[in-house]
């Protein structure tokens, strides 16, 4: 299938900033480098600047200061329609007055691709997203998942070196979202396209990305692989935003972070001792809230496998973890 990107490009942001109406900086000196063919996520809560960053890469927003580069080309001042990027919107943004095939063909028509080739490439792109036979439908006649696939087909059919996705799965229900996560990841691998993915869903980011940039208040808190981000968070924000974590305060504003599932429960007399406050059975795991003698509370997750003692509320337990599983956070 000759649907692959011309050749995946790297993306570089060099101290890019943006503010609206002189207010707080929506994006504050963001620098990052996305490698060719990488699945790169911008993760953070709403208002953290991730969407603005993506829209600046796409060219919908101008840059106050800093430079944006795609491959060897500085695109900072290049208008949207000359940036040659695929874009998938959260709302899909399909043209309601055009059929599925016309939607997908749009970018090729703008590029003055010969008619026969357009037909062939539209057919291939729709086959790739499993929508063969839907050519003559209108977007309004499709389900959310199908519209999402059309939006994807429309973005990749132009073989962009870079594909930008703004919370593309946000509007789908949980089951469909997980399926689409898998499919999108597969597709990205197959096409070898560089993909920048904006999401506020940490599970989604962890599951799909090669690397993640965690953003907060317009700044990048940490960039790393999903494992690095999860296992070695650098700041309190990252530790707190991704998954569940126990913070043990240290002098000088520092803190030690330990994931609930890294803690081993045993007999009292360990690193920390406490009493089980509550136990929630989660299926694969059981989540315990353990009250320490000084009043603090710790979360502990124990995998429901193998032999282990039955624990109930009120039991005295000791908490221990491998030294490598405790992460020192920056002040």
């Amino acid at each position: 299938m000759d649907q692959s990107a011309s050749s995946p490009a790297s993306i570089g942001l060099d101290a890019v900033s943006k503010s609206y109406d002189g207010r707080v900086r929506a994006v504050d000196a963001v620098s990052l480098d996305v490698k060719p063919g990488e699945f790169f996520s911008l993760l953070g809560p709403s208002g953290c600047g991730k969407t603005t960053t993506l829209r600046m890469i796409a060219g919908f927003e101008t840059v106050d200061t800093g430079r944006i580069r795609v491959g060897d080309r500085d695109v900072t001042d290049v208008p949207v329609h000359k940036r040659d990027m695929g874009m998938v919107f959260q709302s899909y943004a399909l043209f309601p007055h055009r059929t599925v095939a016309e939607n997908v063909a749009f970018g090729l028509r703008m590029r003055k691709v010969p008619k026969a080739e357009i037909e062939e490439r539209v057919r291939a792109a729709l086959a790739l997203v499993a929508l063969t036979g839907f050519e003559d439908r209108r977007p309004g006649q499709l389900s959310g998942g199908q519209q999402q696939r059309v939006a994807l087909a429309r973005a990749i059919v132009i073989r962009p070196p870079v594909l930008l996705c703004d919370e593309p799965l946000g509007a789908l229900d949980r089951k469909l979202r997980q399926q689409m996560q898998f499919e999108l990841k597969q597709l990205q691998k197959e096409l070898g396209v560089t993909l920048v993915f904006v999401t506020h869903d940490q599970e989604e980011a962890l599951a799909m990305s090669d690397r993640i940039a965690v953003m907060n208040a317009g700044r990048i808190e940490q960039i790393g692989t999903p494992t690095e981000i999860y296992d070695r968070p650098r700041t309190r924000f990252v530790a707190d935003f991704i998954g569940e974590i126990n913070l043990i305060e240290r002098p000088g504003g520092k803190a030690l972070a330990v994931r609930p599932e890294k803690i081993v429960l045993g007999a009292p007399g360990a690193v920390l001792d406490g009493t089980i406050d509550s136990a929630s059975f989660l299926g694969g795991q059981t989540l315990y809230r353990v009250a320490l003698s000084d009043g603090r509370q710790m979360l502990v997750k124990e995998t429901n496998a193998g032999e282990r003692p039955v624990r109930s509320v009120g039991d005295k337990v000791g908490l221990a973890w491998a030294a490598a599983d405790g992460v020192e956070l920056e002040a």
Binding site: A58, G59, F60, P79, V80, H81, K82, R83, D84, M85, G86, M87, F89, S91, A93, L94, F95, P96, F106, G107, M110, R111, R154, A155, I158, L164
Partner: peptide, 14 residues
């Protein structure tokens, strides 16, 4: 929806 116009622009339409 303004995003329809943005989508068209991103697909190469001036």
């Amino acid at each position: 929806d303004e995003r329809l116009e943005q989508a068209a622009r991103s697909l190469g339409a001036n």
